[in-house]
Nucleic acid binder design. Structure first.
Lengths: 355, 355
DNA sequence: GTGAAAGCGCTAACAC
DNA sequence: GTGTTAGCGCTTTCAC
């Protein structure tokens, strides 16, 4: 039964006739193509790879057969030969949260353009799992590696790994000067926000932000202070408030700010959730936004910015661009280029009605 | 030049000594291990794979050498031999959003347990890109495929693909009875919500939800009506409102509901954003939640449920469990098991202060 | 107990 | 123009 298509003349033994083999085994191989096209394997390969000197007829015949039987070269075999897998790995410690996601997506898109596939591994901050994933990836002979995380801290460099394996850290910082780390410019983002508020004539600008153990919080604070100085505005006592990354903290912070004599006419918030909490608290207090107080958030997370009343001005970290650049850098390193150091990429300001 | 490796005795030419080769070429191979351990390749393989009859000494010696030079078997070569790549692909059309993410994460975790790596591909609803990714994956001889999406509609089955390639659709539904689709039980989730409200003594339960072109919306509506009937409650005219998935619509819907004579004492919302909008509108109206009106959302998205005032009761689709089951099913199918049909998995109710 | 050799699917160098 | 062949790194059967 089930003797599939093809074959000219075949004596007796059906069990190992070519057709049988085709029917039983997995995907068709170049051998199958060659047999059916009545050429040698080498010739078939030449035809399929558009190489060498070949009569038009042979070439077309081979290609036709290949198409007919649905031949698709086995990448594993090709990789073995080329010593390049056209595959990279990405290890995340943020379990691919809201921030890593746009990055990974853009990265994958960039690499797909070059025909490079991406292995996705989630280590969730467990060094053992990270080690295990890395091992697996090295076994698969990946051509490069991307490491992503929450940004909180510098992380120990991943390793040990195959000598010369290109690695890019993105939204993550390796504690190793020889490594390449790609990050958003938090300080510059803060400057953008505060300069914008100052340009709108605000004189009393507060900063409500997250926990100081985040490097981003410290950098944004630096930017906030630098921009105040640049605009000739004073730093007012009690106008810098560090808390947690929640709406509740945003509401609480507004209560704190308004229990003082000197009140802000603008608040730069460390993220959009804090900003939204602040916005809600002000509205409920009867304080007009942006009339009395202008608000700027950070992250430009549409779920927050668009649902806020009024819609929230925010700083965008351009994560997709960051992901794309990570892809570019990795490709370049795979091609032999050198790259290292901490690189920070500009944020941008997205103005909406809250400022 | 470039006279490659091998061969026991070879005069002069230092350029192809074993050490040289080791230094120049890529990762160490089993050949290197064998040479340095002074055994044949076959023996080395046996030692490394804990197989066959081998003297303890030889075995240990081989393992020691392997460890020393950092030998790691080349998975590509193994795969070629085994005709199994221990690799699967996942194609997403939701660009890995909030819903697909927990699923993919759990899936990856489950597969990692079995030493199977996951290729991540984002097709973003572009059939051409989907086709292209699929091609690449087939070339890489994946052992299985997972397809994910927004749930809006049934999608055409992916293909054509290698005969017998196991495929699981999760949070996505293939228009093909022979395929396996894993989905949350939207109808059951709605029943859970409404029964909960009824059990709390609510008699006038409204349902504010998203666009009807989502199958989930239609199913939840069915559940809503079934649960009302079950509790002996009437369906009140104008108490079912379909709109969009936003907070703004939640606020607007409350305005609509309260412009009528008959007012609800509970609202079951189609997602947490709508619920949150409703909550805000009620608070601003001075209507007490849950005193006067109880609210239940859908999705159990912490960003919404925890920031809401009061915290929001919601239906959880148990997406991680769904992802894990997708992994289990795929593994089973790879092992030869058969599986098909549309399977819906239960949601659960997470009670918080809004109800 | 150990080694030699065939073969997984493919490419590239070299014959003819 | 086309065929033959030697590997890529690994496993496995079969001699010895």
């Amino acid at each position: 039964m089930a003797r599939s298509n093809n074959m000219q003349d075949d004596a007796a033994t059906p069990s190992d006739s070519p057709s049988q083999r085709l029917a039983v085994a997995g995907p068709p191989t170049i051998r199958d193509v060659a047999r059916l096209a009545n050429v040698s394997i080498g010739t078939a390969s030449k035809a399929l790879n558009a190489g060498g000197r070949l009569s038009k007829e042979t070439r077309e015949n081979v290609l036709r057969v290949a198409r007919e039987i649905g031949y698709r070269p086995n990448d594993l075999a090709q990789s073995l030969h080329r010593a390049k897998s056209r595959t990279i790995g990405i290890i995340s410690n943020d379990s691919f949260g809201r921030f890593t996601f746009p990055i990974v997506e853009a990265l994958e898109e960039r690499l797909a353009e070059e025909g490079i596939a991406v292995f996705m591994c989630n280590a969730t901050d467990d060094p053992a799992r990270e080690r295990q994933h890395l091992d697996q990836l090295l076994g698969k002979r990946i051509d490069g590696l991307v490491v992503t995380a929450r940004r909180a801290d510098k992380r120990p460099p991943i390793g040990p790994l195959a000598h010369g394996l290109p690695v890019v850290y993105v939204f993550s910082q390796a504690d190793d000067p020889g490594a390449l780390s790609l990050l958003p410019d938090d300080e510059g983002g803060a400057v953008l926000a505060v300069a914008h508020l100052a340009a709108r004539g605000r004189k009393h600008i507060a900063h409500v932000t997250g926990p100081e153990h985040f490097e981003a919080v410290r950098l944004r604070k630096t930017g906030y202070r630098a921009a105040l100085a640049e605009a000739g505005l004073p730093e007012i006592d009690g106008f810098y408030l560090s808390g947690v990354w929640s709406e509740a903290w945003g509401r609480e912070a507004v209560a704190k700010l308004f229990s003082r004599r000197e009140r802000p006419d603008a608040i730069f918030c460390g993220n959009d959730q804090i900003a939204r909490g602040a916005l809600d608290a002000l509205r409920e207090k009867g304080v007009s936004v942006p009339g009395d107080v202008a608000i700027v958030g950070f992250d430009n997370w549409d779920v927050m910015t668009l649902a806020a009343r009024p819609p929230l001005t925010s700083i965008d970290m351009n994560l997709k661009a960051l992901g794309r650049e990570a892809g570019d850098s990795l490709l370049d390193m795979i091609a032999g280029g050198a790259n290292s150091g901490v690189k920070r990429r500009p944020c941008s300001l997205v103005v909406r009605e809250s400022s």
